[in-house]
C-alpha cells in the first residue's frame, strides 16, 4: 500500500536508497534500507576498509525522511498547500544539519524515522533519525527540501 509511492521516486538503481516504507502519514514516515555490499562507494571509501560515507547516510535520511514524505504530502494533496507535481518536478535538498553517532558497514539494514516540523509553500522541514537493527541511533538531524519546478495548483 505505502509502497506504491516508491514508484514515484526519481532515482534509479545505484542512487536509490529506499527499500520499504513501514509507516507513512501526513506527519511522518518510517522506512528502511539495506546497504548493498557491492555499492559503488565501498570500493574507494575506504580502500580495503569499506565504511558507508556520511554523505550516503545523509542521502538515505533525505530520500526516506524528506522525499518520500514530501511526495506523499503532495500527491495526497491537501488543497491549501497549493503545490502540485509536474513532469519536470524533482526534489532538491535545501539544508541539512546532521550529527553522526555510529558507523554503518556494508550489508547493514538501517531504519529512518522522520517527523514533520512543517510543510508550507512547498518546503518540507523534518527532524530525521536513523537507527540500526539493534535500535541504536546512527544519525540525527534537521532536513529541509523543496520540489523544484512544482506548479501552483
Amino acid at each position: 500500500m505505502y509502497n506504491d509511492i516508491l514508484n514515484l521516486l526519481p532515482y534509479k538503481s545505484s542512487f536509490r536508497f529506499v527499500d520499504a516504507i513501514l509507516f507513512l502519514d501526513d506527519d511522518g514516515i518510517k522506512g528502511e534500507y539495506t546497504l548493498k555490499a557491492d555499492s559503488f562507494f565501498y570500493e574507494d571509501h575506504f580502500i580495503g576498509n569499506p565504511v558507508t560515507p556520511g554523505v550516503i547516510i545523509t542521502e538515505i535520511m533525505a530520500q526516506i525522511g524528506l522525499v518520500v514524505l514530501g511526495i506523499h504530502l503532495i500527491v495526497s494533496g491537501k488543497k491549501e498547500e497549493e503545490i502540485i507535481m509536474d513532469v519536470d518536478s524533482f526534489p532538491l535538498l535545501t539544508s541539512t544539519d546532521v550529527s553522526f553517532f555510529k558507523m554503518v558497514l556494508p550489508g547493514e539494514k538501517v531504519t529512518v524515522i522522520s517527523k514533520k516540523q512543517y510543510f508550507r509553500f512547498g518546503k518540507l522541514k523534518c527532524l530525521v533519525e536513523m537507527y540500526d537493527e539493534a535500535s541504536e541511533l546512527i544519525a540525527k538531524g534537521i532536513f529541509s527540501g523543496i520540489i523544484k519546478n512544482a506548479i501552483k495548483g
Binding site: 535545501t94 539544508s95 512543517y118 508550507r120 509553500f121 512547498g122 518546503k123 522541514k125 529541509s144 523543496i146
Partner: peptide
Amino acid sequence: ANLVDIII
C-alpha cells in the same frame, strides 16, 4: 529556501 522560514 529560507524565505519560507522568514514567513513562518
